[in-house]
């Protein structure tokens, strides 16, 4: 799915034509998505879809190869008691752990994603960020989750944000680029929209809300604005850009609400792990409990589901 940088003629977007966003209107629209009642078969379908879209994540200072191997094991065996489950889309780790994950997932269809570019703050020189990426890509990362320079963005230096993404995209080579906007630091939905547009024009394959290290992380209003930016970019360029809300989505009910929103904003073509991911660490088990409940009719306890 990743579009090679050489084939994508990136150009700096005309920000003067950027559409405005009204926060209250966005919140009202979100409230309406949340009122959809997803029952029975459509619920099972949604839960199963949600599982397949998870980027199972560990991004801690305390991460060790052992922890990462456990995570990969969980990715491969979500809950074997329930047959026919899809696997998650990817595991997401720091660059130093990419090799470990790559090895643990060898021969399987689960991607290895790595955060990079001085995650989470992005406060390093470009050369260091590119070195970070090179390390991850060389270690076998399929996907790179970069952070934009909020410092540059908040100074109004949009060209620098754009150029940096372009440089990163080039460094990624064939690896898939997800651009983290860290919307919790941008302040307004207008800025979320602007950052989305810059990222997509600069070559992002995915745009992603958050590092998970800043509150608020992913929210539905923020995600809606990003989905609408993706839709408009698609109208304009015919390119399909993916979306990844990350952080704060831990319950299946939330996941279903995000999927409802995805379906009603971007439609059927985006209902795939190729174009939509949940960045989450604990969502998978809640989805599993719900699936088990749908299968058995009995409410579940976390004690019966492996943590990792």
């Amino acid at each position: 799915m990743s579009i090679p940088a050489t084939e994508f003629a990136s150009r700096f977007p005309d920000l003067s034509r950027q559409m405005r966003v009204d926060q209250v209107g966005v919140e009202e629209r979100v409230a309406r998505f949340c009122k959809r009642s997803i029952k029975n078969q459509s619920k099972v379908q949604a839960l199963s879809m949600a599982l397949s879209m998870i980027d199972l994540t560990t991004l801690e200072g305390q991460d060790t190869p052992g922890k990462v191997r456990q995570l990969c094991q969980k990715a491969l065996h979500l809950h074997d008691q329930l047959p026919g489950l899809p696997h998650v889309a990817a595991v997401c780790v720091y660059p130093t752990m990419v090799a470990v994950a790559r090895q643990a997932l060898a021969g399987h269809d689960i991607k290895v994603a790595s955060v990079a570019t001085a995650f989470p703050s992005g406060q390093s020189p470009l050369a260091a960020k590119l070195a970070d990426i090179k390390m991850a890509v060389d270690s076998g990362a399929d996907e790179i989750d970069m952070v934009i320079s909020r410092s540059a963005f908040l100074q109004g230096n949009y060209a620098r944000v754009f150029d940096e993404i372009g440089a990163v995209k080039e460094e990624c080579g064939s690896a898939h680029l997800k651009v983290i906007l860290e919307t919790g630091e941008l302040g307004t939905l207008d800025r979320v929209r602007r950052a989305s547009v810059i990222a997509m024009h600069a070559g992002a394959d995915f745009i992603k809300t958050s590092t998970g290290k800043i509150q608020p992380a992913a929210t539905m209003p923020v995600t809606l604005v990003m989905l609408q930016a993706i839709r408009d970019f698609y109208y304009e360029t015919d390119r399909l850009v993916g979306m990844k809300p990350a952080g704060g989505i831990s319950k299946s009910k939330q996941a279903i609400q995000y999927l409802v929103m995805l379906r009603e904003v971007l439609g059927e073509r985006w209902l795939t792990p190729e174009l939509f991911r949940f960045g989450a660490s604990s969502l998978a088990n809640d989805v599993l409990m719900q699936l088990q409940k749908q299968a058995t009719g009995v409410y579940q306890s976390p004690d019966y589901f492996s943590k990792d």
């Binding site: 029952k39 459509s42 619920k43 839709r231 360029t237 379906r263 009603e264 439609g267 059927e268 073509r269």
Partner: peptide, 20 residues
């Protein structure tokens, strides 16, 4: 290249079950 609007696909495999 402006894509023709009104072309998103909302008729997919995931349809909402009745929720009376």
């Amino acid at each position: 290249m402006v894509r023709e609007l009104g072309k998103l696909d909302f008729k997919g495999t995931w349809q909402y079950a009745a929720a009376p």
